[in-house]
Computed example of a mutant assay.
Amino acid sequence: MSDRNPGMELDLEWVSRVRVNTQAVLKRAQQIQGRKLVKKQWEAAWLLRAVTCIDLTTLAGDDTPSNVHRLCLKATQPVRYDLLKELDMHDKGITTAAVCVYPSRVADAVKFLKAANSSLAVASVATGFPAGQTPLETRLEEVRLAVQDGAREIDIVINRTLALSAQWEALYQEIRQCREACGDAHMKTILAVGELGPFTTVYKASLVAMMAGSDFIKTSTGKETTNATYPVAVVMARAIRDYFLRTGHKVGFKPAGGIRTAKDSLVWLTLMKEELGDEWAEPHLFRLGASTLLADIERQIYHHVTGRYAAYQELPLA
């Protein structure tokens, strides 16, 4: 990953000046969705890029060591070898960006990846995911335990109450402490935008999270009723750009929740490229949080190579 964002002093004056023009945001999001997407070999290349940006995720109540094992195998070989060989990409080391699991499954994932001789990172959600409604001390301890078990990335959730009641100082301090608890592990801060209301609040929460030292800001837990949407991504991307112009520090972006089709992943990459530039279409600054997306991307690659669509049972499950 790139140099980390060290954060900065909380600048409440900057936060209070924020105003977001809703109509302009919606118009921009529509423009990006209306773009013609790449075709043929360019589409295959972009889809493989999308694969390398996926945090392959399982966050279910019935997760067991065996389905985490299967997820890890899929992450290390996300696209069938014969398809990659046809594209002359079989020796390029294509894997997903990380495997994302609950804290209690981190040790399993680390063990399986080690056994597979893979250097793939394990990401863990923490801090009372998905609601974040547990005492701060409990949330911080959860981060420490996940890092102790070998998680190299931590996806924390913010305390939405603090954002909704504009307690920016308190939110900043909580995220700062989470960053400390992460140690060397990279921290992705989930804003749960579906529960934050207006775009202005989303923008302010994004700024505060970056000032507090987040390496990434992430849209959603995937458990809210509204998850990653393009308008919200435009708002968060503009906050990332402003923060970069002000501080020189690059913060990554991760949409999550409801991203299921290969076409979706191309629109997300286009949005990153247009709003933030080429570097934000790389895994060190862009991640897609997804559990079912990979299956559709692999089907599209299969179609590109063979001219027909595979039945789902012809491709290995994640």
Rank of each mutant, 00 (worst) to 15 (best):
V51L: 02
M272K: 02
D82T: 15
R238L: 13
K114W: 00
E13Y: 02
A170V: 10
M8K: 10
D91M: 06
A116F: 08
A163L: 08
D108C: 14
T127E: 05
R308D: 04
Y230F: 15
K223P: 14
L48G: 01
H303V: 01
V232S: 10
A295L: 07
D278W: 01
I240E: 07
F216Y: 15
F286T: 06
V106R: 12
D296P: 02
T219A: 03
K263I: 04
D296I: 00
I301Y: 03
A50M: 05
V25H: 06
P135T: 15
V101N: 07
M236G: 08
N5M: 12
L294M: 04
W168L: 07
Q177P: 03
K74H: 11
H284M: 10
K114G: 03
V20F: 00
K263E: 07
F199W: 05
R176P: 08
H249P: 04
R308I: 14
R238N: 07
V267R: 01
K114A: 00
T225N: 04
A60S: 05
S119M: 03
G128W: 06
A281V: 11
V20Q: 02
C53H: 02
A295F: 01
C100Q: 08
N117L: 01
P316C: 05
L245I: 09
T247K: 09
L83I: 15
W14P: 05
M89H: 13
A205G: 11
T127P: 00
S16L: 09
A146I: 13
A109G: 09
K263D: 03
T96G: 03
G213D: 10
